[in-house]
Design a protein around this nucleic acid. Structure first.
Length: 587
RNA sequence: GGUUCCAUAGCUCAACCGGAUAGAGCAACGGUUUUCUAAACCGUAGGUUCCAGGUUCGAGUCCUGGUGGGAUCACCA
């Protein structure tokens, strides 16, 4: 039994002995740093039983449990707060256990399977900053679940078909002059993206011309020649026209090559990739079944709907009057496919919050269809990334391109490192790797440290500032530890009897780490891990600054501090691995 | 307009179930290097937690109403 359980049990016993009650619950919380103590019991809710003032009640309980538990060094009472200070030997025991078994996250996910769908790009344009947030979040949440014993399937659903893909294809055929990534030297996804933009420019021009001739604007949008041709192309694609399929395959292959490079650099990967071109028809059968069972209904024009007004949602179309499926139908189909393949307990979609309504509807529909996996569906909804000048818009060219951004943070890392000039003796390969580790670390951490569901601002100058709450700060802390360990020839020691305050703080922070991982799972939000790691790093730098480690004369104390530092380093590295960030050995 | 999310220091973000004197980083100002890496450390200053009510021992957190902002409400994906 761990100490917290014992503490709660003893305290409950104290309260029921003192005030003769038995049906109540209590909980301890961390003591506010402004007061002395480690854990705190708020006694206000107990006053109605004790019928005494808050101070007196707290003092009575404190005196009772102090006698009962050796781990309690002392207690103090401020108003209705009973602050309990634990002994150094208690914290040393915690540390010892930590050092003996290493960083351990409670195994709460044994025999549970989670499918995490993330990334899910369109193959008509390159990735941008919003995609980076998606990828980094998705990958991190996978790592976090894995650390607690879940079996995780990293899943990507590639949106490789549809009218938007045809737009790039149309523009390429018309303006492309057979250029290829090889001939132009442009990365495949960027090349295709170029024609997507090209399409839009030409399309706008055509619309304008029609409007100038007196056509209504909506009508012009429908009748612009390039739009008509693109719709025609989509039909050909759906009918399996060989020529259309062939150009589609070629262009998609270029995009995949480009994406793979970006994925590799971001350090994300997938266990299972679905392509929408394979799955987009899957939902239709389920729609038919649902129709027969009366979950869906048909309107006079033959379109099929579901009525969700009882759930506070609207009616939603699931099949068009011409018999083709809509987006949500595909999602129903793919959900079913995934369940038949993986029988997962939990199914996380990492998708932006502009689709909150969509996923609410999807879950309701799956429930109405009595799908067993409906309850396990979770939409990890994250906020948009804003730019200081406003929101990103592909059309206006105000997107932050993923590849450019990565190149920029890496080159900043290089510049910073060179200015500090501490990398003597490292060869070119090592340096390249270091810049990559620092630059990408900074970028990922910048995106992961804020609450996933919140909208956030991307500030270019701040993201490449490597001071304060940043990945390089934590990486720097790690290299300090690595350097200590290199200097230590051996680590043999007895645990001391007393702790320096900064040592105790470090132990407390490390003790809180596994709990933060569980909190990240509960909230599906890696920022809790990021914040916990930051606290530990900050604590270490204070410790490092205040007391000497290698310079300590007493060899036992010296080795103890090295072992403590080692443990801090391991915890930092563990935390960063859950965020998908590497640790350098030197910087 | 309906639904929904958000609003905390000059800026970017924290604050576990409702708990004490709301915390960090950046920016500003001042300090620390004969000492294990100064990408560090210490200090000063900075707040009517959007507004008005309510619930209670206690509200940034919960409820109601307002103000401001985002998203969504397609036979698009």
């Amino acid at each position: 039994m761990d100490f917290k359980t014992t503490l709660v049990a003893k305290t409950k016993k104290a309260i029921s002995d003192l005030y003769s009650i038995d049906d109540f619950s209590i909980d301890f919380e961390k003591t506010n740093p402004n007061f002395s103590g480690d854990v705190t019991l708020v006694v206000f809710p107990l006053l109605r039983y004790s019928k005494k003032g808050p101070e007196e009640t707290a003092n009575e309980i404190g005196a009772y449990i102090k006698k009962e538990l050796d781990q309690i060094y002392d207690f103090n009472v401020v108003k209705g707060f009973l602050n309990i200070e634990l002994t150094d030997s208690y914290w040393l025991d915690i540390l010892k256990k930590n050092i003996d078994i290493g960083v351990q996250i409670p195994n709460i996910g044994a025999n549970q399977k989670v499918v995490v769908e993330y990334s899910s790009p369109n193959t008509n344009k390159p990735l941008h900053l919003g995609h980076i947030r998606n990828n980094v979040l998705g990958y991190s949440i996978c790592k976090i679940y894995e650390s607690a014993g879940y079996e995780v399937i990293k899943n990507n659903l590639v949106n490789d078909r549809g009218i938007h893909i045809c737009k790039s294809m149309y523009a390429y055929l018309r303006f492309g002059n057979h250029e290829t990534p090889e001939s132009s030297g442009v990365k495949g996804d960027h090349l295709v993206g170029k024609y997507y933009v090209e399409f839009d420019k030409n399309y706008q021009k055509e619309v304008q011309e029609l409007v100038d001739k007196g056509m209504d604007s909506d009508e012009a949008k429908e009748n612009a020649p390039s739009m008509v041709a693109t719709r025609e192309m989509l039909k050909k694609w759906e009918n399996g026209d060989p020529e259309t399929l062939s150009i589609w395959k070629v262009m998609n292959a270029w995009v995949y090559e480009g994406f793979d490079e970006t994925y590799r650099r971001l350090g994300v990967s997938f266990d299972k990739i679905y392509y929408e071109s394979d799955t987009y028809l899957l939902g239709k059968k389920i729609v038919q079944e649902g129709l027969e069972r009366g979950v869906f209904f048909r309107k006079p024009d033959q379109s099929i709907w579901i009525d969700l007004t009882e759930d506070g949602l609207d009616e939603k179309i699931v099949q068009r009057s011409d018999g083709t499926s809509v987006y949500i139908t595909q999602d129903i189909g793919t959900a079913d496919l995934k369940y038949s393949e993986f029988s997962m307990d939990k199914f996380i979609y990492v998708v932006g919050n502009e689709q909150d309504y969509h996923f609410k509807v999807l879950q309701r529909i799956l429930k109405r269809l009595n799908k067993p996996y409906a309850d396990g569906l979770y939409h990890l909804s994250y906020g948009m990334v804003d730019l200081p000048e406003g929101k990103m818009k592909s059309r206006e060219g105000t997107v932050v391109d993923a590849d450019e951004l990565i190149a920029e943070v890496v080159s900043t890392a290089k510049k910073q490192t060179e200015e500090l000039g501490k990398t003597e003796g490292m060869n070119t390969d090592e340096l390249t790797e270091l810049y990559e580790t620092l630059g990408l670390g900074a970028l990922k951490y910048y995106l992961l440290k804020v609450d996933a569901k919140k909208r956030m601002l991307y500030n270019p100058s701040e993201s490449i500032d490597f001071q304060g709450n940043t990945a390089p700060f934590i990486q720097y802390t790690y290299t300090r530890i690595a350097s200590l360990l290199r200097a230590a020839d051996q680590i043999k020691f007895e645990y001391p009897l007393l702790l320096h305050p900064t040592e105790k703080d470090l132990i407390k922070n490390m003790h809180a780490y596994p709990e933060s991982v569980l909190a990240s799972i509960r909230s599906n939000n890696p920022s809790e891990v990021a914040n916990s790691v930051y606290e530990i790093a900050k604590g270490f730098n204070k410790f490092y600054h205040e007391i000497s480690i290698l310079g300590e004369d007493d060899s036992n104390t010296r080795f103890f501090r090295i072992a403590l530092s080692d443990m801090v380093g391991k915890t930092l590295k563990h935390g960063f691995s859950l965020l998908g960030i590497e640790m350098p050995m030197r910087m």
